[in-house]
Design a protein around this nucleic acid. Structure first.
Lengths: 344, 344
DNA sequence: GCACGTCACTGAACCGGTAAAGTCTCTATT
DNA sequence: AATAGAGACTTTACCGGTTCAGTGACGTGC
């Protein structure tokens, strides 16, 4: 177990072995002109024999590109693990990064200030070549920071939240309106929404859109909205209190802001002796595979989270290579009716 | 949007501003002796005014510690997103890293060879100070590589798989045996297991343990085992084929290797008109919050995946700071009976 | 036959830090 | 009064690459 570790091989060793200078090795490995075929081959052979590959740290310091992108997430560690969205999003990001031999630097932070500090230090330390920004809030400091630093970023969120940054976003307002119209078309007139964290920008976009959509209904409908922390437990609590009222008073349909809460809602309904969808309709959001695994299956506002992550990563590469700011909508979540929604 | 980005401020700027040399700034920021209080204060003030923090890239190159740990995962991107285990594990890891201002470098790889190459290049390039190794296979090349490189690693897996590396592991064999004995005690004599990916070491440990545990039963019992890719769809398929046989022929209890597959199994049972737990008992593994959200709730072999990740991270820091190899068992998954198991 | 270009490569400076050795000043000791 | 030693910094040499201004050698045109 304690064999002497192999000493680190450096560019100097390769140069010596190939009988050239460090500079020549560098030229060869960066596919720059100015070397004969023969020399190039000799260098590659020497590198292979020594098992050498350039140190990306040194390379970075010397001023070339950085093959790492950052992702700071400001949510409690425990909640992160519970939320299928994130892992699927990250897997989508990775699917693009992997093609470019790029790694993802992931860090949880406890508050927005810490995130700003982290971005600064990552960027100044050349730890990252760019960053993905998620979970925008009102008056988010990050657009200003990114601009001041010249840090290439892509914002995940509606352009109204991201202050001119290149953004990738889904049209949640339209999706919420569609959800409401769908439930109304089924005949529901008492509709509730179990939303996400109130401080997040996309939550308030959905909240406003929900309000408007319900107000637009004729005949008039009644609405409830509750904020949660996205956890299943919070979803269960919210559902329980919504359904506690008498049969003529409680909502007949509930829209959730993610699918974990919808699954929780499903079991709360069962526990309260209510049938889904006969007594109450449930509509999930995000639509991970979970929605197809419950019984009844969950109707959902469905979108391709994996593809969303991939698009974010591609867009980030665009920004890094100097593309100007842009707004990249990805497809609006589409209503996917399954077994949990029906006329009241 | 195109304000000139702030030029990067370096240690030299801070030194100039404080009226000292680079070396003095370095001493101050590394809390080394040899500076007067007054000078130290002046340096910190200058740094604060300029908004400077040391570049970890440069610091790394110059040979001090690295504040990044690696995690290469060799699974298809899509599956990763579906598996609650991973995100929860990672969140546990992060919860410890964040205390030490350490980031996680995450990379998906397509095959074990790519992972080996990545570890080599990360380590030689001083990109990481250590790495977490997961998903051990038979004859895994990584222990030899880690030793050859002198790379600090902690292996997530049973010591029999990890060849002398410091390892953190759950006693899956005991847990499988407990699961089988529990089902047998309920009266089940036809027991199936829907396992994970066959090529993974921990899967074969569970497979063997399951076989042995069933063979030890008196009166004798009948067993089935199926391998999957851990996805809900695969779990559903496996369940469907297990339950397709006639009432006297099919298993009366099924153990799953994760909880996504158990949730899938639950809905397959419903779809086939079988009641859980009256007609068939289901037992999940890992026990994310999902198991408490289904109806009926899922009995599970429960363990604290978040805490597991945290322990792995702590152990890795131990290895990095020079602790000798060790074996760190974390608590064996414990049977948590809920609504999905009952006498046949 | 000689100036001129081009090609292939070298050498040195530099990126932003760390670490060890060197310098200078001031105090305590003999 | 001379000397040793400690304290407070500064200087310098790296770390492992990239980059760019040279340097010869060789081919070409007139």
């Amino acid at each position: 177990m304690t064999a002497t570790p192999t000493p680190r091989v450096t560019i100097k060793d390769v140069a010596a072995r190939a009988g050239v200078s460090k500079g020549a090795v560098s030229l060869a490995f960066n596919r720059k002109p100015g070397l004969s075929e023969a020399t190039r081959d000799r260098i590659f052979r020497a590198a292979r024999e020594l098992g050498w590959a350039p140190s990306s740290t040194a390379r970075t310091l010397a001023g070339s590109r950085v093959d790492v992108v950052g992702l700071a997430v400001c949510r409690p560690a425990r909640l992160l693990g519970l939320e299928p969205f994130y892992m699927e999003f990250i897997s989508g990001v990775e699917s693009v990064l992997v093609e470019r031999s790029c790694a993802l630097l992931l860090r949880l932070v406890r508050n927005p200030d810490e995130e700003v500090g982290l971005l600064e230090s990552w960027w100044r330390g050349r730890q990252i070549g760019g960053s993905i920004l998620v979970d925008f809030r009102a008056d988010d400091p990050r657009p200003a920071v990114a601009e001041r630093l010249g840090l290439p970023v892509v914002a995940v969120g509606h352009p109204s939240l991201t202050d001119g940054l290149t953004s990738v976003w889904t049209d949640d307002a339209t999706a919420v309106a569609e959800a409401v119209r769908y439930l109304a078309a089924l005949g529901h007139r008492r509709i509730a929404r179990v939303g996400g964290a109130a401080e997040l920008g996309h939550t308030s976009i959905r909240t406003t859109a929900f309000d408007e959509a319900v107000r637009a209904l004729r005949p008039a409908a009644r609405a409830w909205q509750v904020a949660t922390d996205f956890s299943g437990d919070a979803g269960a609590r919210a559902t329980r209190s919504l359904l506690a009222a008498g049969p003529g008073e409680r909502p007949t349909a509930i829209v959730y802001d993610n699918d974990i809460m919808a699954v929780a809602g499903l079991s709360v309904a069962a526990e309260m002796g209510l049938r889904v969808p006969e007594d109450v309709s449930l509509l999930a959001w995000d639509d991970s595979q979970l929605c197809r695994l419950t019984h009844p299956t969950l109707s959902a506002m469905s979108h391709d989270v994996h593809g969303f992550g991939a698009e974010v990563a591609r867009t980030l590469f665009g920004v890094i290579t100097g593309e100007g700011p842009g707004s990249h909508p990805v497809p609006t979540p589409v209503l996917t009716p399954r077994g949990s929604t029906a006329p009241p």
